[in-house]
């Protein structure tokens, strides 16, 4: 007798538990305003990333095509995986002195782990993290970027 009662109790519990679960689902079906899904490629124009988001390393240039990188290689040293390669050259300045300046700032995006260590390491704040996260390209070689723009110079006064 006991087993039979237990059997029906189990069935009642089962049905009740299923109804409970369905009630939660029903609650959200009838309230579409609570849906939080973002329609990603459609909302591209309005998509706002958080300003600290680490997308990729970029080097800002001002309107005179000048950057702030001295070529000191601090970022190259601190990077855990050889993502940054600084190629510098020696040039003669107007006053006759020779100075080391940056020739190419090579950034291998395919190796970057976005750890963010290079940004605080830079003494002149020459590099920052941008929010851009759409990195997909068809060929790997496109991911190796030269961050200093062609013909760019170092900003006067940066040592």
């Amino acid at each position: 007798m006991k087993e039979i009662i237990q059997y029906f109790k189990d069935i009642a519990f089962g049905i009740k538990s299923l109804i409970k679960g369905m009630r939660v689902t029903g609650h959200y079906i009838s309230r579409p305003s609570k849906i939080i899904t973002q329609q990603y490629p459609e909302n591209k124009e309005t998509l706002q990333m958080f300003d600290r988001f680490r997308g990729e390393v970029v080097m800002p240039h001002d309107e005179n095509n000048e950057h702030m990188c001295t070529g000191c290689s601090a970022c190259e040293v601190v990077c855990p995986n050889g993502t940054i390669e600084i190629i510098s050259k020696r040039v003669e300045m107007e006053d006759g002195k020779k100075q080391k300046i940056i020739d190419k700032f090579v950034y291998h995006l395919q190796m970057c782990t976005m750890c963010g260590l290079c940004i605080p390491a830079c003494p002149t704040d020459a590099i920052v993290m941008s929010n851009d996260f759409e990195h997909a390209v068809f060929d790997r070689s496109q991911l190796t970027k030269i961050l200093n723009k062609p013909g760019s110079k170092i900003m006067p006064g940066i040592k």
Binding site: F50, R52, F53, R54, T113, M114, G116
Partner: peptide
């Protein structure tokens, strides 16, 4: 993950 993204700068590998 939004809180992490805003404060730490990444959603998963925050460092």
């Amino acid at each position: 993950t939004d809180i992490f993204e805003e404060t730490c700068g990444a959603r998963l590998t925050m460092n």
